[in-house]
Computed example of a mutant assay.
Amino acid sequence: MILVFGKSGQVATELAALPDTQCFGRDAADLTDPASSAALILQHAPSAVINAAAYTAVDKAEEDEDTAHLVNAQAPAAMARVCAEMGIPFVHISTDYVFDGSGTALWQPTDPVAPLGAYGRTKLAGEQAVSDSKGIFGILRTSWVFSAHGNNFVKTMLRLGASRDALTIVADQIGGPTAARDIAQTCHVMALQLAEDATKSGVYHFAGAPTLSWADFARAIFAKAGLDVAVTDIPSKDYPTPAARPANSRMDCTTTTQAFGVPPCDWDAALDAVLEQLKDTSA
């Protein structure tokens, strides 16, 4: 059995549908109490662990970094240590926010990290703790997650597009939209393969291709959903937020494909599937 931390989040919801997985929410392990995470792993003695839970409120983290650090750094540290002691793989989901978003090149897993805000700092601390555990681990950095579940850009655009005929969307942030279902499947593959080959331990990237701006992603969503919404490009400075977002979230996924046979997410096809899923659930 693969034990999954997270139950209601986008990736955890998709992991729950995969074979031999068991998802646990806050009622089973409160990640603000890292010891409870380790205890849950010891109690269930799984074959692998996937951490799909995180403090993801990017703006709120600016004023609540202590809580974000507990959930994003100290809890994964406790999970990784007990997995190392048990000799089982630990797969941990991280983020493009560990980078400063400079330049236009694709970020490599080995590139220098320099988070812009509290969320990125806490996620980076989690990565470092997982690596320091010296166990069998896979850190999977991803970006711009979307699905038919929870809160995400696709669902926000559909909601706004249903009642408005024009929107202004940030166009100077570039990245790869990534389907939660594809992230879940990749984590599952990593857990299984790491159990067979511990030498694959390391940091990997998994994101959607081709890359584009938020504004262009919005246009794609509206076109596929049949919504007539005019999108006007604006710079990030015209949409200020408490936490800075990386301008460049382009991620190189080559080593993930080489190690695990998983190609980058085809966000165009994944978006079709999510829109169809949303249509079915609203029918």
Score class of each variant (00 low, 15 high):
Ala148Thr: 09
Ala148Glu: 14
His149Ile: 01
His149Gln: 07
Gly150Thr: 12
Gly150Val: 12
Gly150Ser: 13
Asn152Asp: 12
Val154Thr: 05
Lys155Cys: 06
Lys155Ile: 10
Thr156Val: 11
Thr156Gln: 15
Leu158His: 12
Leu158Gln: 11
Arg159Leu: 01
Leu160Asp: 02
Ser163His: 12
Asp165Pro: 01
Ala166Thr: 13
Ala166Tyr: 09
Ala166Phe: 08
Thr168Cys: 03
Ile169Phe: 10
Ile169Asp: 06
Ala171His: 00
Asp172Ser: 12
Gly175Phe: 03
Gly175Glu: 04
Gly176Pro: 07
Gly176Trp: 11
Pro177Asp: 10
Thr178Val: 10
Ala179Phe: 14
Arg181Ala: 15
Arg181Leu: 11
Asp182Ile: 05
Ala184Ile: 02
Ala184Met: 03
Ala184Pro: 01
Gln185Ala: 06
Thr186Met: 12
Thr186Leu: 13
Cys187Pro: 01
Cys187Asn: 06
Cys187Ala: 15
His188Thr: 03
His188Asp: 09
Val189Gln: 11
Met190Thr: 11
Ala191Trp: 02
Ala191Ile: 02
Leu192Lys: 14
Leu192Gln: 15
Gln193Tyr: 04
Leu194His: 00
Ala195His: 07
Glu196Trp: 03
Asp197His: 14
Asp197Gln: 14
Asp197Tyr: 07
Asp197Phe: 07
Ala198Lys: 13
Ala198Ser: 14
Ala198Gly: 07
Thr199Pro: 00
Thr199Gln: 06
Val203Pro: 00
His205Gln: 14
Phe206Gly: 08
Ala207Met: 01
Ala207Val: 00
Ala207Cys: 06
Pro210Phe: 10
Thr211Ile: 01
Ser213Gln: 13
Trp214Gln: 06
Trp214Phe: 13
Ala215Phe: 07
Ala215Ser: 15
Ala215Ile: 07
Asp216His: 14
Asp216Leu: 06
Phe217Val: 02
Phe217Asp: 02
Phe217Ala: 08
Ala218Lys: 04
Ala220Asn: 10
Ile221Val: 15
Ile221Phe: 06
Ala223Ile: 05
Ala223Ser: 15
Lys224Glu: 03
Lys224Leu: 04
Ala225Glu: 03
Gly226Lys: 08
